[in-house]
Design a protein around this nucleic acid. Structure first.
Lengths: 104, 104
DNA sequence: CCGATATTTCCATGAATATAGAAATAGCAG
DNA sequence: CTGCTATTTCTATATTCATGGAAATATCGG
């Protein structure tokens, strides 16, 4: 969660989420975000360490993509224990009846 | 998202999510987390500013509770635009067919 | 091997943020 | 009003973190 706490990193991550399974080359991210490569690389590294992003080489370019499994786990981390210790108001609270929904 | 980037704050928030709609008194949080009141207060303030938590006075004690609507919005923020610019792999990616699922 | 492009690592600096003690405030019971 | 408990605000300090320039590394085409 930590990893998405930085605005720049959140932007990167969202771009990758939007991009879908094809991902984006690092260079493309850099172009769109208009930040120095070193900064971008720094953030990518953090996202990778956090498991939220994966990378794959294709020749000289490096494709980054969001790790959807981790994204779902992250969401699950917030939601799954929802109301575990208290009452639930069904109208306000995410359904717990389909735990696999976001986790698979 | 920023607001959940701090470990202490994430702990606070998760406790509140677990607690459900009844919420928890600030004092209870302090007991469980074993941190100084000033630190706790500081973090609560941030969570409130972010709209993730609400508070309500009951006499001398202050009840905090997670704002589930904001939580759902947060999740939506990550997920809703998923694959908007690219291909989706249905097996990996959260369903986009029920956008209201987590948002209502 | 050489040059070109893509990306990372190293490093230093500055900015943001967490933390916590002490004092202040709020609400209530008597 | 007084005392009591809960909580916040103030303030200072320490830590963590983002940022970006420069140099290093990787991959490829020739």
């Amino acid at each position: 969660m930590d990893s998405l706490g930085n605005p720049t990193r959140l932007r990167i991550y969202r771009m990758l989420v939007r991009a879908g399974i094809d991902g984006l080359p690092v260079g493309r991210l850099q172009q769109s975000l208009d930040i120095p490569g070193s900064t971008l690389s720094h953030h990518c590294k953090k996202l990778i360490e956090a498991g939220l992003v994966t990378q794959e080489r294709h020749g000289t370019t490096l494709i980054s993509r969001a790790n959807y499994k981790a994204m779902n786990a992250l969401i699950g981390y917030l939601v799954d224990e929802c109301c575990a210790d208290g009452r639930c108001d069904e109208r306000q609270v995410p359904a717990k009846t389909e735990p696999g929904k976001h986790a698979e």
